[in-house]
């Protein structure tokens, strides 16, 4: 079978045996179709919305790491973080028909993941307000002697410092500083104004800097 340029309209290009066939293998210049992994988000979202599993899996592979990282840094627990990722994406599959704007997909993932994490965290602690004088006790489900990922001392310090923040501050800080989401988007996620987000972010940074200062 030659390159695609030789396919004529209506020409059958399988081997002819009943039960065996293959799409024409392209020559060197014209590549075989890009596996879904190489397609843009908009195309993948349209396809996934219509039930295309390959497209959905491509979106999953594209975003699962970042969503996991957000969930892990929010909850400090690997098992919880994986649960969040699974819930977010299974829900995404169910709700794909509702996502009308393809560009809104990643924002939807972040929104859903953040809310899941906040709900999960609310379920963990007693309701009393945590302020700077009473930071949460550092229980360390994430500390894992075999974990090669925590080799960086700075990252460890930051991980500890993040637990000093309130859940909402941590969400704001992670979304902005680690994931580059816009103020508008963050405001929408935690249901406030962009200006309030700016204020909370500043507070969070000061608090983290203080926690990471050499006098600790």
């Amino acid at each position: 079978m030659d390159g695609l340029s030789t396919v004529q309209a209506g020409e059958a290009f399988w081997s002819g045996e009943v039960g065996r066939c293959g799409l024409a293998r392209a020559g060197a210049v014209h590549a075989t179709p890009i596996p879904s992994a190489g397609l843009d988000d908009a195309t993948l979202v349209v396809r996934a919305r219509e039930g295309d599993l390959a497209a959905f899996e491509a979106l999953l592979r594209r975003y699962q790491k970042r969503i996991y990282q957000l969930a892990l840094r929010m909850t400090s627990n690997r098992a919880d973080a994986e649960d969040v990722v699974q819930e977010v994406f299974v829900t995404a599959w169910r709700r794909m028909p509702e996502i009308q704007r393809e560009a809104a997909f990643s924002g939807w993932l972040y929104t859903t993941a953040t809310n899941r994490c906040l709900t999960l965290l609310r379920g963990r602690r007693p309701v009393s307000e945590l302020d700077d004088a009473n930071p949460p006790v550092a229980d360390d489900p994430m500390e894992d002697p075999e974990s090669a990922a925590q080799t960086s001392a700075q990252l460890e310090a930051l991980t500890r410092a993040l637990r000093v923040l309130t859940d909402e501050q941590r969400a704001v800080w992670l979304l902005r500083e680690a994931h580059g989401r816009s103020y508008d988007e963050i405001a929408h996620i935690i249901d406030t104004t962009p200006d309030a987000v700016r204020g909370r972010l500043f507070r969070a940074r000061a608090q983290l800097a203080e926690a990471m200062s050499p006098w600790h």
């Binding site: 790491k65 996991y68 990282q69 840094r73 994986e82 310090a157 930051l158 926690a211 050499p214």
Partner: peptide, 21 residues
């Protein structure tokens, strides 16, 4: 120094090494 430590750690987090299983 604390602020600078934060900035540096933040840079690492932008390319967070942790991965899901």
């Amino acid at each position: 120094h604390g602020i600078e430590a934060l900035n540096e750690a933040t840079r690492i987090l932008l390319d967070d090494p942790v991965e899901p299983e």
